[in-house]
């Protein structure tokens, strides 16, 4: 186990289910809410068009339901986060309070962006996701424990195995998910590669 304070080994808390497949990044955070030079305030805009009508009145959506308030673990379907590379999508989810996402599968850039900001994006099969979503719908106060080393999601009711890409797991457990320091290290080799490749002067 790493001593790095940035290491992410576990996520605990209640969960929030978001049924449905192919939830794209434009649904997570529509492009017109990206008109900002910071990520601050994005938590309030997450799923904006799905949570509120054009007049600003709330619509029926899990993210609007009191019973899921304070949830740390988001449970989603297949191909979640497909579409754009906007990091605003996982940033908005994180700033809403989510600390881990469990889904059947993810858009690849989205999953990478989750890792980059320290959010584990884990996968499980369709039946497991379906059962987890129902379990949470029926018992929204249920506490879960995501153990990244063991790759399990446990509660009093149920414990399931989850998967995560080896690179993401290594980076989260070692606390190197913020890649900048690691990448700054190989300066001499970077210079060597730069020198031998064409450049645009």
């Amino acid at each position: 186990m790493s001593n790095n304070p940035a290491a992410i080994t576990a996520v605990q808390g209640t969960a929030i289910p978001l049924p449905g497949n192919d939830v794209d990044t434009d649904r997570i955070i529509p492009a017109r809410y990206l008109r900002s030079v910071t990520f601050e305030g994005l938590g309030a805009e997450v799923f904006k068009d799905e949570r509120f009508n054009d007049e600003g009145s709330p619509k029926s959506h899990p993210f609007n339901e009191e019973k899921y308030a304070g949830a740390a673990i988001l449970i989603v379907g297949r191909n979640f986060g497909c579409g754009s590379s906007r990091e605003h999508a996982p940033q908005a989810i994180m700033r809403f309070g989510i600390k881990a996402i469990i889904g059947e599968s993810f858009g690849e850039i989205f999953a990478g962006n989750c890792t980059s900001i320290g959010i584990p994006a884990c996968t499980a099969d369709e039946q497991t996701i379906d059962e987890l979503q129902k379990l949470v719908q029926n018992n929204p106060q249920l506490n879960f424990d995501l153990d990244l080393e063991a790759q399990t999601l446990s509660s009093e009711e149920k414990s399931v195995a989850v998967d995560i890409s080896p690179a993401a797991k290594t980076a989260l457990l070692a606390g190197t998910w913020n890649t900048l320091d690691e990448l700054l290290q190989n300066e001499a080799v970077i210079e060597e590669v730069h020198q031998r490749l064409p450049s645009f002067v």
């Binding site: 605003h88 980059s116 890649t179 900048l180 970077i190 730069h194």
Partner: peptide, 20 residues
Amino acid sequence: FGIGTSQVRDVLATQTLAFE
């Protein structure tokens, strides 16, 4: 490759990416 903003930071600062 399309990348997120944390990776834009990485490329600006190091001209490299951590990638699979």
